[in-house]
Design a protein around this nucleic acid. Sequence first.
RNA 1: GGGAGAGUGUCCCGAGUGGCAAAGGGGGCGGACUGUAAAUCCGCUGGCUUACGCCUUCGUAGGUUCGAGUCCUACCUCUCCCA
Length: 417
Amino acid sequence: MTAFKSDFLNILSERGFIHQCSDFEGLDALAARGEAIAYVGYDCTAPSLHIGNYLTMMMLHWLQASGNKPITLMGGGTTMVGDPSGKDESRAIRSIAEIEANKASIRGVFSKVLRYGAGPTDAIMLDNAEWLTKLNWIEMLRDVGRHFSVNRMLTMDSVRLRLEREQEMSFIEFNYMVCQAYDFVELARRTGCRLQMGGSDQWGNIVNGVDLGRRMGTPPLFALTTPLLTTASGAKMGKTAQGAVWLNADQFSPYDFWQYWRNVEDADVVKFLKLFTVLPMAEIEKLGALKGSEINEAKKALATEATALLHGREAANTAAETARQTFEEGAIAETLPTVEISSGELEAGAGVLTLFVKAGLVASNGEARRQIKGGGLRVNDTAVTDEKMVLTRSSLTPEGVIKLSMGKKKHVLLKPA
RNA sequence: GGGAGAGUGUCCCGAGUGGCAAAGGGGGCGGACUGUAAAUCCGCUGGCUUACGCCUUCGUAGGUUCGAGUCCUACCUCUCCCA
């Protein structure tokens, strides 16, 4: 496992980050000298990044930890174009205002795992809108466009798959790869950046940049990608009932984040410990040796460590403690998600259906009815059998709340206000 | 500009002869079994309603019909072929 000279590649390799690399030897030598300046681009397609992006953020983290310099590139410009990779249909073209808003909302998350500053290994943040929006069409065609073979572009997965499925692909999307390739060259010139990393679906785009660099006279550039994140049962990772697993706390609370990791499949625990925590390998091996139900201890470690890294140690411990009280003691943890209801409403008596809807556990009265029929709803840990049940002050627990649950995992406290 | 085809339950795929709240999957949710796991089995998966039932849904808008996802007309969007 220690085939590399550089700490950077050794760490990535033993933790399972590496899928493909354009030139291991060259990159290894560069990183061993602490001269690897590397970037990952993040498109501003949503107000928050998700755990798929987290993987590449962790690569930047290890890059920095091993004495090299990371660059986070906001795709302010490329998002205006839209990446066709892995998409069956054209992405809706986003408004400039939306992109700007997303950009502002995303950028804060990087400082959780990277140290920014002006030092030699401090991270820097750039935005490709800075140069892409200023390009001149004809100049661009003459300087950059002539290096692109349309024949080859047509064979790239992102394009070929679309064509094979007879799905339309517009010219603007066709140019996404040109923009991304140009970014790499621009960064190489501006900052001495030599390496671009990304998900395996970005391989084609990244390699294009490597080629373009050679033709346009930059020093040799390198490409490095991560494997596609899947769960042991083969599903794409990061999707839950609520949607994606977002990194921003206001879209996916630390408690939910903790729960997400706590509920991963057994077979994934070690893999995720390596990818999503900074626990030492020896520690991970110890956790990985656990068998049967002891694996739950490893899952708790995974949940707490991953949450601590992103949301801070305190939030992680709170989430862990909330879970412990709720699941292991069956007690009511004050820190569970809470919804306020007016005391007047409670005084008059409120129907269970309405309350479950209000708590956000079900989407409609109808769904509440169905869940009651299936035995899925509980009030203060007692199954609801009568959909006409009315809750009043007398339903309050000694703690002064009403605990509503759907299934075994979702709980909300109602608090009179 | 001409020709051919397609748009179905707001998660996705996808059947659909004029009587359809609309087959079947996948996904999701809930239950049982467990370890807050996986696998398996069972139930649910448009809204309102205690209920009979009512309302809203098949690209959009009209029309024919007792009755339209299904027939007709116009329009919109997409794909392919020709120019």
